[in-house]
Design a protein around this nucleic acid. Structure first.
Length: 880
RNA sequence: GGGCGAUUAGCUCAGCCGGUUAGAGCGACGGAUUUACAUUCCGUAGGUCCCUGGUUCGAAUCCAGGAUCGCCCACCA
């Protein structure tokens, strides 16, 4: 066996170890009727993606769950893959084209798509390689892509099924239009952000008679599409005007003045211009009052169908020109500063234009019903539970989903039009999984396929079953669906989680998963989201390079409780690195004395009994925490046990055990480390594998990742040993504290210490363990005495059941020591007063549970005892 | 306008069902080279648990109201 180097170097380990795992097939899972499956489907990262801290957190959590389940003996499958990310990917390739001075239109649809596929083949695996560096134990054979043949088949199947059930329709509605991407967006893709704008007041002259009606708008350019003015029916100011007409300034179009409850009397002037083709509310008004729908903008937000001076102007240029012209005409009123919410494209952040447009929609209400029920009745649960409410609130108010996009990269709609039929006034719409040769109604050919593609989420909402082979009834689908846990960030609940649940019930009649684990967003130390434009990114790959993968994973997981946002700064990764190094050196210490003992450890010394007992508790605690998905609790429990219990105390003591106890002590340490490595493996897979390989017993599994999850051994839980050892620790600590407080020079070894107790067993215990005390507390002799009050020039610490008396032979500063003890006595008196007050309260005596009263009494007795001792020592000092 | 979350040490955060003297890591300060680890060890200082009221024998914890910050949802043009 080669000796371990003094420091853990992740670079020497990670890549080779990962390749070995993969080559051994440890990541693979196949249907197996004998074992309970455990399945996770990865939230497919964008194929254009590069690993950021959010991915790192998300995938670390999934890997922890998968490795935990695998070690528990479950048939653990983690399905990886990527999303074609329609708009995002198209944007990336268009940017590359722009560098060549070309547009996608220059290439044409077919050649452009070829370009995108080439790009995907070349760069689309980047994120998957990066996931491997993170240690992700996915079954890579099952990697899927949302535009794979099988997944595309699933998309068409669902589209046709929904259409046939009347759940997909085409219609002319107001949608969010991104003028830059030149496509429709779903509501969720155009999140509103608070924007500082202006509220322009414009006076519309009345057509009949004198006077005017003043309206207010944030988008003056839309006035060119106005086809009415609306007021509230009960608004006395405008009562007389209802049914009359106003004139659109600069255009002089006659606009009816209509009355509708939708108008807010409080806002602006209480009169509103109505632009049915460019505003969702106005659209409703337009339908209700049978107004004209006048679309005044082109796909790239230039004005159209408007009077000459404005025709062809960009929407914002038009706005400026209109303001000038309105001013000249004398109809421009006040311009107020106004903060309002404007939708922005989630891909390019351009302000979206609400715009009337023929698009395809999915009727969501019927789909939502079973998805609401499943969460209400607990079939699917959110962790943390508070997201349930957010989900239900959204689902109960769900709007129809605009699924058509005017881009090229994506699943093209399986919709064909028969122009011959349409000319004769028939619908002429054919929806079919395969291209129809001719029109089934009139036999005309050729047919024209719809140009649009489907929203990216229309393929990812099928992900939990499409990746397993659906619509084919594969054995994977039968074995692994429904999946178990979905791990994702809160931002994606509406986009993806909710829709997967709906699709799951629609296609499979079963939920796609049973638990949704929502983790927080990774932010920088000031609480801002990490983003390129802010320049506050901490790159996970850089952190891996600097601190190692295990350090990255450990730090992310311990950074915060699940569901809370994580505020990250680089220094935190050092803690993870240090922990890995600590484990490394604990094992190194063990192996420096020979190979890991194979013998079954016996609880010989009190330290053995203590650490083995603590180990059982740790096994129990970590298992429970993982089952409850309290990852940070599990990880910090292991940290405390390994660093503080194993390293700070057990290893230190093991250096001073009797020669006869030595070999067994090594076996105990080896055992504690070996079990701990297994517990820690899901969190820090690399260093634990490396060390476990040194510690593993003959005949065990070849790798820690396929070894069994530890089970606690109740026989080894030893409360008495724990209490005894805790007392020992307290004595050691008190001696250390006293020495430090009195500034005893480091080279001065306190020659002797008395441990005083009324309890003979305690005296004997310290007498038996004086070697340890001497070593750990820096003292030469330890004597267990019954009474040393006559000892002068000594100091004391009074603990639970024992007193520690430290003669300091001239080193003691009587004044300083008196002050120290007086202070301690004062603190004690405070405690006593507080505790007495509590006990003297008759209410407390009559209402508190007996255990609490008993406990409080003991506490008081102890405090009084301690105080008595302190006073005795003070009187000794005074006599000096 | 609704909803959610946060507020605990200088910083980042734990603290389950109410029960001793509220914890950790980092940072600060003092000390240490004794048998793995200086990516180490030992020790110390540092707290109005956001505020106000309530429930209770007892509140960081439960309830009500408020403040500040953050996020989500919503058609005030």
């Amino acid at each position: 066996m080669s000796a371990l180097p003094p420091q853990y170097n992740p670079k020497d380990v990670e890549e080779a170890r990962y390749q070995w795992w993969e080559s051994q097939g440890f990541f693979r899972a196949d249907p197996d009727p004998k074992r309970t499956p455990y399945t996770i489907v990865i939230p497919p990262p964008n194929v254009t993606g590069i690993l950021h801290m959010g991915h790192a957190l998300n995938n670390t959590i999934q890997d922890i769950l998968i490795r935990f389940a695998r070690m528990q003996g479950r048939n653990a499958l983690w399905v990886p893959g990527t999303d074609h990310a329609g708009i995002a990917t198209q944007n990336v390739v268009e940017k590359a084209l722009a560098k060549e001075g070309k547009t996608r239109q220059d290439l044409g649809r077919e050649a452009f798509l070829k370009r995108v596929w080439e790009w995907k083949e070349q760069y689309g695996h980047t994120i998957l390689y990066q996931l491997k560096r993170l240690g992700a134990s996915c079954d890579w054979r099952r990697t899927r892509f949302t535009m794979d043949e099988g997944l595309s088949e699933a998309v068409l199947e669902v589209f046709v099924r929904l259409y046939e059930k009347g759940l997909i329709y085409r219609g002319n509605y107001i949608i969010n239009w991104c003028p830059r991407c030149q496509t429709a967006l779903a509501d969720e893709e155009a999140p509103r952000t608070e924007t500082q704008g202006k509220l322009y007041h414009i006076r519309y002259p009345l057509a009949e008679g004198k006077g005017h009606i003043e309206v207010a708008t944030t988008r003056p350019e839309t006035m060119l599409g106005d086809t009415a003015v609306a007021v509230h029916p009960k608004d006395k100011r405008y009562n007389a005007l209802i049914g009359r007409h106003a004139l659109l300034p600069l255009v002089n179009r006659k606009l009816p003045i209509i009355a509708d409850e939708a108008v807010d009397r409080e806002f602006g002037t209480g009169a509103v211009k109505v632009t049915p083709a460019h505003d969702p509310v106005d659209f409703q008004l337009g339908k209700k009052h049978r107004l004209e729908f006048l679309n005044v903008m082109t796909d790239d937000a230039k004005m159209t169908n408007v009077p000459k001076p404005y025709e062809g102007l960009d929407r914002l240029d038009c706005r400026s020109k209109l303001i000038v012209d309105l001013e000249k005409t004398g109809v421009l009123g006040a311009i107020d500063e106004h903060v309002h919410n404007v939708g922005h494209c989630y891909r390019c952040h351009t302000a979206v234009e609400p715009r009337l447009s023929p698009q395809w929609f999915v009727r969501m209400k019927p789909l939502a019903q079973p998805a609401i029920k499943a969460v209400k009745n607990g079939t699917i649960k959110f962790v943390p539970a508070r997201w349930t409410k957010v989900y239900l609130n959204w689902m109960e108010n769900i709007q129809d989903w605009c699924i058509s996009r005017q881009i090229w990269w994506g699943h093209r709609l399986p919709v064909w039009y028969c122009d011959a039929c349409r000319q004769r006034g028939r619908p002429g719409v054919i929806v079919s999984k395969t291209p129809p040769a001719s029109c089934p109604t009139c036999k005309a050919e050729p047919l024209r396929q719809d140009e649009d593609v489907l929203d990216t989420w229309f393929s990812s909402w099928l992900w939990p079953f499409s990746t397993l082979g659906w619509p084919k009834q594969t054995k994977e689908l039968a074995a692994f669906y429904p999946t178990d846990t979905l791990v994702t960030a809160q931002e994606i609940i509406f986009f993806w989680v909710a829709r997967m649940i709906m699709a799951g019930y629609f296609c499979m009649k079963q939920p796609p998963f049973t638990t949704v684990s929502i983790h927080g967003t990774v932010r920088d130390i000031t609480g801002k989201k990490m983003s390129k434009s802010l320049g506050n990114i901490i790159d996970p790959l850089e952190m891996i390079g600097r601190y190692g993968t295990d350090a990255l994973r450990y730090t992310l997981v311990t950074a915060t409780a699940i569901g809370q946002d994580i505020f990250l700064s680089e220094e935190r990764f050092a803690a993870g690195r240090n922990f890995a190094n600590k484990l490394w050196n604990a094992t190194r210490y063990l192996l420096s004395q020979g190979p890991a003992p194979a013998s079954v450890p016996q609880a010989q010394t009190i330290a053995d009994r203590w650490i083995l007992s603590r180990l059982q508790r740790t096994v129990k605690q970590v298992t429970a925490a993982l089952e409850a998905m309290l990852f940070n609790e599990a990880a910090s429990g292991l940290y405390d046990f390994l660093w503080h219990d194993v390293c700070d105390w057990y290893i230190e003591i093991s250096k001073y055990v009797q020669p006869a106890e030595k070999e067994n002590s090594r076996a105990v340490l080896a055992h504690a480390l070996e079990v701990s490595m297994r517990l820690l493996h899901p969190f820090m897979p690399f260093v634990t594998e490396e060390l476990w390989q040194q510690l593993r017993l003959a005949g065990s599994k070849p790798s820690i990742m396929v070894s069994a999850w530890p089970a606690p051994d109740k026989q080894l839980v030893d409360t008495k040993a724990e209490a005894q050892f805790e007392r020992f620790k307290a004595v050691v600590t008190s001696i250390r504290t006293t020495r430090a407080e009195l500034n005893v020079p480091s080279d001065h070894r306190t020659p002797v210490v008395w441990v005083v107790s009324k309890d003979a067993a305690i005296r004997r215990f310290f007498d038996d363990h004086k070697t340890w005390l001497q070593a750990l507390a820096h003292v030469h002799e330890v004597a267990a005495l019954q009474d040393v009050r006559k000892q002068r020039d000594a100091t004391t610490a009074v603990l639970d059941g024992v007193e520690v008396v430290i003669p300091l032979g001239g080193l003691i500063d009587v004044q300083k020591e008196t002050k120290r003890l007086q202070q301690k006595a004062a603190e004690k008196m405070n405690d006593i007063a507080r505790t007495e007050a509590r006990l003297n309260n008759p209410q407390f005596a009559s209402k508190a549970p007996v255990e609490v009263i008993e406990q409080t009494r003991n506490q008081l007795a102890q405090a009084q005892e301690t105080l008595k001792k302190l006073h005795e020592y003070l009187s000794v000092l005074q006599s000096m």
